[in-house]
Design a protein around this nucleic acid. Structure first.
Lengths: 238, 238
DNA sequence: CGCTCATTTGAGGAACTTCAAGGTCAGTGG
DNA sequence: CCACTGACCTTGAAGTTCCTCAAATGAGCG
């Protein structure tokens, strides 16, 4: 845990808080399902929730080797800075997402894309439990394969046009956030552009273009959108 | 198994052959490690090896839901045809690779990129075993996370320049195939281009360019390369 | 208001694609 | 042995998409 200096709120590994808010429990249920005993097991292994401010580093590979992460609130990004100074965002994690299968060779860093609260779950403890409880093993395998499916979709997206990438991203985000009336985009355009392999300017033009075509509209609030024409969006997405 | 009509060699699920060649066993050991009993367990679950000719469909999502696949010889690709008729290759699997965590929503198809031999392993049987044997569970989780790491690397690659993508692909392939003197590229340029999100022309130009810069050279054989200047290649790869 | 940070817009250039043609190689049949 | 064929790869020229650089606009906040 040498790298915990990076943390905004230092993580005290001896401080096991039992999470208590209904909100947290509801999100946590996404991982454990309605299996109450499994939820108890997982909650006993957790550390946190730990709060991070936007753009702070949550973990580097070394940390992720020790912990699996669970997002309670906010958005987490995993990204890679390459030597040239360019950044790629590999994945976004939203509330309820359970992740941490990071290959050390990739040297990704896990960062807060917004202010966020994250649970840390000791990997070793969970793996040990998995050997005793099939359900735990299934939770792990399911989480890993879900993340794989997302990564494969991301690969497919990267060979499409800018407009298609933007439309797909916004629609997927809208679905992941629960298909609310408004899509309050939580992360910056720069984060999205780095996720989609575009420049911020190209992303902006793509969004403006969709607005002009009345596929989406912008509510004059910070980053609030309405997906107006789902049929049209689907056409742009291919 | 309704879709087995696609198979070149129909798969008889009641025909359990024990694989016998040293070659197969050696590759299989990559999955099971030097754990002899685990190797025996896995081999008891297998069906095959089944031979497929180049470009034949090995499995569609429905099949992959039932079986995990193990490549004995040749190259397997998983790919997606989109409505416009364009194709993307999501992943290549080489001898020794153990895969099959395919999300049905993506509707990928698993195809033979070269003539190939594939083992089918009943997913249910393996999952059932995993609940009894921690080592089996670990094999599954490890295979899934390895594939995730590969997919994430693929995502990172897709936002690089054409030359970087080509150089990285060839170098990675060379490593995966065992760093031999010659790199005999087993798949077609079209497959590679679809994997890298490039046109076949752009790929060809990138390779020709690397040859002119003396990073690689082409042996006047079918698709045989020599990676001459590893330092220079690394520079192009970033 | 005036500052900062984030986003938008425009003009020009680079990278990649498209379209079209030519080349190479292995297999096939005369 | 040679010509023919088809699959695969290469090359060139023109067009499109996206990026780069530069500047303007907008939003949030003390």
């Amino acid at each position: 845990m040498a790298n915990l200096d990076f943390y905004t709120t230092p993580l005290d590994v001896n401080d096991t808080k039992i999470f208590g808010t209904a909100d947290t429990a509801a999100h946590f249920a996404k991982v454990a399902g309605d299996n109450a005993s499994l939820q108890r097991i997982l909650s006993a292994l957790q550390r946190g929730p730990v709060h991070f401010y936007r753009n702070n580093v949550i973990a580097l590979d070394e940390d992720v080797a020790d912990y699996l992460l669970f997002v309670v609130t906010g958005v987490v990004r995993s990204c890679k800075i390459c030597k040239k100074g360019t950044r790629s965002v590999v994945s976004f994690y939203l509330p309820g997402d359970f992740f941490g299968w990071v290959d050390a060779k990739l040297s990704l860093s896990i960062e807060a894309a917004t202010d966020t609260e994250v649970l840390f779950i000791k990997r070793k403890g969970l793996v040990a439990l998995a050997s005793q409880d099939v359900r735990v093993a299934n939770v792990l395998l399911t989480a890993a394969t879900n993340e794989l499916a997302r990564a494969q979709e991301h690969v497919l997206l990267m060979s499409k046009s800018a407009k298609c990438r933007a439309a797909t991203f916004l629609t997927d985000l809208w679905v992941r956030l629960g298909k609310a009336q408004y899509l309050d985009v939580p992360m910056s355009h720069q984060d999205i552009a780095d996720y989609l392999g575009l420049t911020i300017e190209t992303l902006s033009r793509a969004i403006t273009d969709m607005e002009r075509s009345e596929l989406i509209s912008r509510v004059p609030s910070q980053r609030r959108l309405i997906l107006q024409n789902h049929f049209g969006l689907r056409r742009v997405m291919n």
